[in-house]
Simulated assay, not measured.
Amino acid sequence: MLKKLKFYLIGLVPGLLIVFFILNQKGTSCSYFPNDRVIAETLTKDFSYSEKFKKEMKTGQISEKQLKNNIIPNGKIDFDRSNAQKQPCPEYILIYPKSNPDYEIHYSKCKEKAEFISLKKLK
């Protein structure tokens, strides 16, 4: 029995290390929580902005880079107020930061693009 366990561990440990390093290099993530999946899918889409959203970004001095690199990845989807079942483009409410939010973003996520509709400063 100990011999079988030893062979099992000899294969398991190097296998786990190899998989860990391969997945780390590709920048993949293994989070399957709904919030993380919606945000990851959103970040792969082409972004388009309504005129209202552009105006609110300018007023709040938020750049597109800041939106893509900071606000969206660190935000939280409010599924209670979102319409995730809407066809053909589900609509979501994202709040940023997750605790004690400063911003609320309303957007729709279609197959090819994410259209940002409104941006509200909460404080």
Rank of each mutant, 00 (worst) to 15 (best):
D78G: 02
S108A: 10
K55H: 08
K113Q: 06
Y49A: 05
T44G: 11
K54D: 14
D102G: 08
D102Y: 01
E104N: 02
T28V: 15
R81K: 10
G11W: 06
K109F: 02
T59M: 05
F21G: 04
G11V: 08
D78F: 00
G27A: 12
F116K: 04
N74C: 11
L43I: 08
Y103V: 02
S29W: 03
V19P: 07
L17V: 15
F33S: 02
N69W: 05
L5C: 00
S29K: 05
P101V: 01
Y32N: 00
I22R: 01
Y92E: 06
G15R: 00
Y8R: 05
P88T: 11
E64H: 11
S99C: 01
S31F: 00
Y96T: 13
E41A: 13
S108P: 02
K86F: 08
I93T: 10
H106F: 09
F47M: 07
L67R: 03
S48T: 12
V19A: 14
T28R: 12
A114F: 06
D102H: 07
T44F: 09
A84Q: 14
T28E: 14
L9V: 01
V19N: 07
K6S: 15
E91G: 03
K68R: 15
I95N: 04
I22K: 04
L5S: 10
P88R: 07
Y92S: 01
I39C: 07
F33D: 05
S108W: 00
E51W: 06
K52E: 14
I39Q: 02
S29F: 03
